[in-house]
Design a protein around this nucleic acid. Structure first.
Length: 383
DNA sequence: CTTAGGG
DNA sequence: CCCTAAG
């Protein structure tokens, strides 16, 4: 397949990219607040290839083959080779913050809101951070930044967590976690997750394009990503040189490979629900009523590009379960329970609110736990 | 597309 | 979180 001079490969935008365009990417989020129906992050519509085109065009590389394409990107982000590329160098100087460079890819790989967190973590001014926090009503600032709370034992408290995630971003070159070589998370994984979000159905193409980025993931701080061991074992064919992805054209990609790839990469990063998010959820329920999760999402989770209505609904379901189970056992549990409550446990007042809302909407799911006396259902219809 | 349920 | 069936 020869792309030379005919069509921009893979829908790559032929227009020249400017740093302003790149930086302006963040601004879309703010304008999006009026757009209630399209809450998906704007960059969901930006193809990875468009982004890749940035570095390639600046480097004057005409990609005729997929291999060169990938190599170009790989090369462009290696710190060692960085100086040799003058074009890219000038681009970064315009940006004014060399440390920002690796993080930019992060931003494209993750949600818009997280990009804002990244920016705020790098900019000296706390203004941006404040804006971001206010935008989402997020009291924890960087807390939501990390998509994964690394807690193998599942017992990391909120404060510890934010500390752990905030530090490494000061030094982007520091390798915080020395993972085994075989356990490193390839960038394709992230791209897969990223592309898998939203309504984009073209993830097949995107996925197969980006597997060559794996080596890049070694050089960057990987803490921002999914360093928690995945529940599903990674497919080995995805990690190393997959002939399908590297050399062969996309015409012959077997469906099974794609399917397994998607299946492996699809799962969203687990994001811990912050207390504030739970509060917003409860506010939304009390505002709209149960079942109006799209409304709740649009009104209370504007800036949270994740947290789909389904996610919110699921969270409510879990909250309900928690509130019920919490009601039954007394406060005898002692230290273990206290330690639990020190972490990400839902505060009691919130649980009370959950139960209030639950009873208000007659969602007494605790009934099957034994309390059958409250059998009558008063279905409350919001108007 | 939005919800509800189950996994 | 993900997937799917229903509306």
């Amino acid at each position: 397949m020869d792309w030379t001079g005919i069509v921009p490969p893979f829908g790559m935008d032929p227009r020249p990219y400017s740093p302003e365009t790149f930086a302006g990417f963040k601004c879309h989020t703010d304008n999006m607040s009026s757009d209630t129906k399209r809450m998906e992050p704007r960059h969901d519509n930006i193809s990875v290839d468009s982004f890749l085109g940035l570095s390639m065009e600046n480097m004057g590389i005409t990609s005729s083959k997929m291999d060169e394409f990938s190599l170009g990107l790989d090369f462009s982000f290696l710190p060692d080779d960085f100086g040799t590329s003058s074009a890219l160098d000038s681009w970064s100087t315009q940006d004014g913050e060399a440390g920002l460079k690796p993080e930019i890819l992060d931003g494209f790989l993750d949600e818009v809101e997280e990009v804002e967190h990244i920016y705020s973590s790098h900019l000296p001014e706390t203004q941006v951070k404040k804006e971001v926090s206010e935008l989402d009503g997020e009291p924890y600032g960087l807390m939501n930044f990390s998509s994964e709370s690394y807690s193998p034992s599942g017992s990391i408290g909120l404060s510890e967590w934010s500390k752990e995630t905030a530090v490494p971003h000061a030094e982007s070159s520091v390798k915080v976690k020395d993972e085994p070589e075989d356990d490193r998370k390839p960038l394709s994984t992230l791209l897969g997750s990223w592309v898998g979000r939203g309504r984009s159905r073209n993830k097949n193409l995107l996925n197969t394009r980006c597997t060559r980025l794996d080596s890049f993931s070694e050089t960057k701080s990987c803490l921002s990503y999914d360093f928690r061991p995945r529940k599903e074992p990674m497919d080995d064919t995805l990690l190393s040189d997959d002939p399908i992805t590297s050399s062969e054209s996309e015409d012959d990609i077997s469906v099974t490979t794609i399917k397994s790839k998607i299946r492996t990469d699809r799962r969203k990063h687990h994001r811990m629900w912050t207390i504030d998010e739970v509060v917003k959820l409860l506010d939304g329920i009390s505002h709209f009523g149960l079942g109006k999760w799209t409304d709740i999402k649009n009104l209370f989770f504007h800036s949270s590009s994740h947290r789909t209505p389904v996610d919110i609904r699921d969270k409510w379901r879990n909250l309900l379960k928690a509130s019920c189970s919490n009601k039954h056992n007394g406060d005898e549990e002692g230290e273990e329970k206290r330690r639990w409550s020190a972490g990400r446990t839902i505060p009691k007042d919130i649980l009370h609110r959950v139960r209030e809302l639950a009873s208000l909407h007659s969602k007494s799911l605790c009934d099957f736990h034994g309390s059958s006396r409250n059998s009558r259902k008063k279905k409350k219809k919001r108007s």
